[in-house]
Design a protein around this nucleic acid. Structure first.
Length: 159
DNA sequence: GCCAACGTTGGC
DNA sequence: GCCAACGTTGGC
């Protein structure tokens, strides 16, 4: 089991949207490094749901992977911003996951708070200039995050 | 709105 | 394969 941090702009798709849907396809990732992380996700992995490009940015809640290696449907949708003309149904370029809503934090863990607890090497999202939208989180950092935020889900973060 | 960081594109 | 130009992300 692995922990991840997944970024999204709440104006586009935030934790409230996932709560409404309960299960959502994490579509629209068009960066190979992020995609490779998505492809390595396993059912049952937890994702810290990070709100970017908002005030203040930070971790807003928690999601869980319920399906892996999902073919991102938006790559075939000519009307989508994420349409990829080089992708074919036989050889899709973009795979992703389905996430299930777990919980929303009563109080967002702001980027500022994250920076006060973690160094750049401990949690990549605090590193200036990091644009990667899917980031692995070590067990150690996940354990600390779970203590910093008011999570209600029971965890066994260290394995 | 600015701009640093950095990924991608395309000419050569 | 290099690298300049360009586009995007995302904090501030």
């Amino acid at each position: 089991m692995t922990y991840w941090l997944i970024k999204s702009e709440p104006d586009v798709y935030g934790i409230d949207d996932l709560k409404k849907e309960q299960v959502g396809v994490w579509d629209g990732v068009r960066n190979y490094q992020a995609r490779n992380y998505l492809k390595s996700m396993q059912t049952g992995d937890y994702c810290f749901f990070y709100h970017s490009n908002t005030k203040p940015p930070g971790i807003a809640g928690l999601a869980k992977i319920v399906e892996t290696m999902v073919v991102d449907p938006s790559q075939f949708d000519i009307n989508s911003d994420y349409f990829d003309p080089k992708s074919t149904v036989d050889a899709p370029r973009w795979h992703t996951v389905k996430c299930q809503y777990v919980e929303t934090l009563p109080e967002l863990i702001s980027l500022e708070t994250l920076r006060s607890h973690f160094g750049e090497d401990e949690l990549l999202v605090v590193k200036r200039g990091t644009r990667l939208s899917v980031i692995p989180v070590s067990f150690e950092s996940a354990d600390r995050l779970l203590k910093i935020g008011a999570f209600t889900t029971a965890f066994q973060p260290l394995m």
